[in-house]
Design a protein around this nucleic acid. Structure first.
Lengths: 182, 182
DNA sequence: CCACCTCCGTACGGGACCGTATGGTCCGAC
DNA sequence: GTCGGACCATACGGTCCCGTACGGAGGTGG
């Protein structure tokens, strides 16, 4: 049987994370998925916590920045916002890891990652609202609002998909509301 | 040592749920909290799942309706909305159970409870927006938006409290945005 | 071809939790 | 006062996961 790398482990851990949450990032089940044994895991990582940490950091690195890069591919600020929200409403599987991570925010390994990602995203949104012509402090609050909606929608999408069935209309309503003046 | 009732068990389970999530609703730890043994638990409930189910149903019964009743104590629709959002931003501990339940929405025991609570709350919000003069379909979308913000704020409040530090301003911005006219 | 390092399999002990079996205690009914 | 049922403690076996110890396979440099 072939050798495994660190990335093999964090890769399968990411899939497990999406499906079963932080608790599913467990050495023995993951070893089974990989067709390996714990021996490999404890070679690449000192313990389960280190594996989880590496997995979360990989997610933070790849996933968060990927979305921002995608959004930056268009130039008009409003179009960026639209693309951003469309991305969430698109598919629930997309934000499965997202929700799993958020759900375990009290875990000492997870907390700092969540804090960094949150800060990064709201900061980016703030820039967008400044570009849309809002004052700095208003922009900050709109950013928090927009991100709250993002999180809430993701939750609703997986908890009660029928509620967010009329996606196109909901998307436009979201944009209109969040960019409304005075 | 005194006898325990079903409510003693669901009571301590609710506390555990708020602190450690669904996974913390475990028979043996709860027995320790109660100063009892598993014997008592397996007398009142056939298994752990039944205990969890009873706990969630108690939460659904008491908590969700309690908030709606509180909100109904004022008459003006906008004031109701304000009170509703103020309740979340008030304290994070208040919505700890909320987040714990949401986090485990893929659990077969949890899912139907979440579905019912979601439906109930969005329905109530829809009524509020109708009272505020919105058309039925717009009201429904505003309700979904408002509930998304509610969920997102709760999440942010426990994940990154500093982000939602300016509560008063954020509350007013939320209200203004969510009730803005086309 | 051998010494060595990397990577992994195997085997073990331990902890947390589930669920069952069984016997004991308390308390009201009669 | 004893009998039956409600309630609980104790003790046990089973599962799943963690982490450690150790030896063996495979490639690589000398």
């Amino acid at each position: 049987m072939a050798r495994r790398t660190r990335d093999d482990w964090t890769g399968v851990a990411l899939r497990a994370l999406a499906e079963g949450g932080v608790a599913a990032v467990a050495v023995e089940p993951l070893a089974a998925r990989l067709g390996a044994t714990k021996g490999s895991a404890y070679w690449h990582f000192p313990n389960r916590e280190a594996l989880l940490k590496a997995t979360l950091e990989r997610w933070e690195r790849e996933h968060t920045e990927a979305v921002i890069e995608l959004v930056e591919s268009v130039s008009e600020p409003l179009a960026k916002l639209r693309l951003l929200f469309a991305k969430v409403l698109e598919n629930a599987g997309h934000s499965a890891v997202e929700l799993a991570v958020l759900a375990a925010e009290d875990d000492p390994v997870v907390a700092p990652v969540v804090a960094r990602v949150t800060e990064r995203r709201i900061g980016y949104l703030r820039e967008l609202f400044v570009l849309l012509g809002f004052d700095a402090d208003v922009a900050r609050r709109r950013a928090v609002l927009a991100y709250s909606i993002y999180l809430g929608q993701a939750q609703l999408l997986s908890a009660a998909p029928d509620v967010v069935a009329a996606r196109r209309l909901l998307l436009e309503e979201t944009l209109a509301v969040v960019t409304s003046r005075g």
